[in-house]
Amino acid sequence: MRIFENDDPPAQVNIVPAIDMIFAILTYFIMASLFLTRAEGLPVNLPQAQNAESQTNRQSIIAIDANGNLAFDRETVTLEELPDRVSAKVNGGSLIVAIAADEAVDYGRVVAVMDSLRGIEGVRLGISTKQQ
């Protein structure tokens, strides 16, 4: 008669904690990459400029798409609402407002946006372009 002294079950590798850790790391990188892209609210095809400069100051973006639709800091607005929204954001300080207009947008629409913002105290206007 044979007597087995070792009645322990065979060793197993549990990979569930490793899978949980991999999914947690993957989730972190996906969420972090979402904040790396800069969206202005509307799809805009910016014109190119050789002498474009980056701005790091406090700024907001007004996007004007090819159809003339406006978005201020990713929220759709009308031309009549725009001065009130911008002056609420300035709140007594200073603010650079970059106008990101599509190449196909009518020049008159850009001038109308600039004209509506010119009277607001503390606002400096800029034009967004792509660097070549």
Rank of each mutant, 00 (worst) to 15 (best):
R38F: 10
S87F: 01
E75C: 00
D65S: 08
Q59K: 13
A88D: 13
E81R: 09
Y28F: 15
R74V: 07
T37S: 14
M21S: 12
S54L: 13
I62D: 01
I19N: 03
I30N: 02
N69R: 13
V90P: 00
D20G: 14
T27E: 09
V97W: 00
S33L: 09
D65Y: 04
G68R: 06
L79Q: 09
M21P: 00
F23C: 11
A63S: 15
A71S: 15
I61T: 14
A32R: 14
A98W: 00
T27Q: 08
I25F: 09
Q12Y: 10
A98M: 10
I96M: 12
R58W: 06
L46H: 01
S60I: 04
G92Y: 07
M31S: 06
P17W: 08
F23R: 14
A98V: 08
A101E: 04
L42K: 02
I15P: 02
P17H: 07
F72K: 05
A11E: 14
A71Q: 08
V90R: 03
D20T: 11
V86C: 05
P17E: 06
Y28M: 13
L82I: 06
Q48L: 09
V44C: 04
P83E: 03
A104P: 02
E80Q: 13
L42T: 02
N51W: 03
R74T: 14
V77Y: 06
A101V: 01
V86I: 11
L26W: 05
G93W: 04
A24I: 11
S54F: 12
R85F: 02
E40H: 11
S87A: 13
V13R: 10
M31W: 05
M31R: 03
N51T: 10
L36V: 10
I99F: 06
N45E: 13
S33R: 10
S54V: 11
P83H: 05
I64A: 03
A71P: 00
D102R: 01
S94H: 12
F35M: 12
A24K: 12
Y28G: 13
A49L: 10
Q55W: 10
T27R: 09
I64W: 04
A11F: 13
G68L: 01
A71F: 07
I30F: 09
D73G: 05
L42S: 06
V44D: 02
A24E: 12
Q55G: 07
S54E: 12
F72M: 07
I25H: 07
Y28A: 15
S94Y: 05
F29L: 14
S94F: 05
T76H: 10
